[in-house]
């Protein structure tokens, strides 16, 4: 009996190893389902024949392992896509370059939040002041709240890269983050002093 079980186990171990061996390549290889098989479109709908399949567009962009399997910011920076910033005449397009360091004392590594990458896509008013207040330190961020689809989770986990990509936000060592915050404070103090001297 035990012998049979061991034999069976051996079969399974081999099977799993074979499957696992083929998996990394299957995972590394990007795949987008055809529109008719996406589980949302009615296969009887004419749209299935007429709409662009995701693979045709997305396979040409910077690859990723999560979400749409596209590094959207990189695709933008490299000029692979040129999405319009506005369609109405007179819309002021704002891009702001400034990093915010968060979670300086948490268990996970600190977060460097880059305004630049976010304002390439978003308007300031998309986040401020409804989701986040502008004053540094005035937002009580919590991973629990984010995982419920609030704060960063309004986009991350829905349309921007998902919340399973921890290290993309928790991306900075404590030493680096503290040094950067010190630099920012010094710059702000210097700017203030300069303003006062005028």
């Amino acid at each position: 009996m035990v012998k049979r079980q061991v034999g069976l186990l051996r079969v399974w171990v081999v099977a799993v190893l074979v499957a696992a061996g083929s998996m990394p390549s299957a995972w590394a290889q990007q795949r987008w389902l055809p529109i008719a098989e996406d589980g949302l479109r009615d296969p009887a709908s004419p749209a299935v024949r007429l709409l662009q399949p995701p693979e045709e567009a997305l396979s040409k962009l910077e690859p990723d392992t999560a979400g749409n399997q596209v590094r959207w910011v990189k695709a933008l920076d490299k000029g692979q896509i040129e999405p319009r910033s506005s369609i109405l005449p007179g819309t002021e397009v704002e891009v702001y370059d400034g990093d915010v360091y968060l979670n300086l004392r948490g268990g996970m590594p600190p977060v460097r939040f880059p305004h630049r990458e976010h304002t390439l896509w978003l308007a300031c008013s998309n986040c401020h002041d409804e989701i986040f207040k502008k004053e540094p330190g005035s937002n009580k961020l919590s991973m629990f709240v984010i995982l419920q689809g609030e704060q960063c989770g309004v986009c991350h986990g829905a349309v921007a890269f998902p919340l399973t990509e921890c290290s993309r936000c928790h991306n900075t060592t404590r030493e680096e983050a503290l040094a950067a915050v010190e630099r920012q404070q010094a710059e702000r103090a210097a700017a203030k002093a300069k303003g006062a001297a005028r």
Partner: peptide, 20 residues
């Protein structure tokens, strides 16, 4: 209606639909 974000964000930034 099925709205594909991926198709639209190749052509428009988030701010166009979510702000303008």
């Amino acid at each position: 209606v099925v709205f594909p974000h991926w198709f639209h964000r190749i052509r428009f930034r988030c701010k166009v639909c979510h702000s303008e």
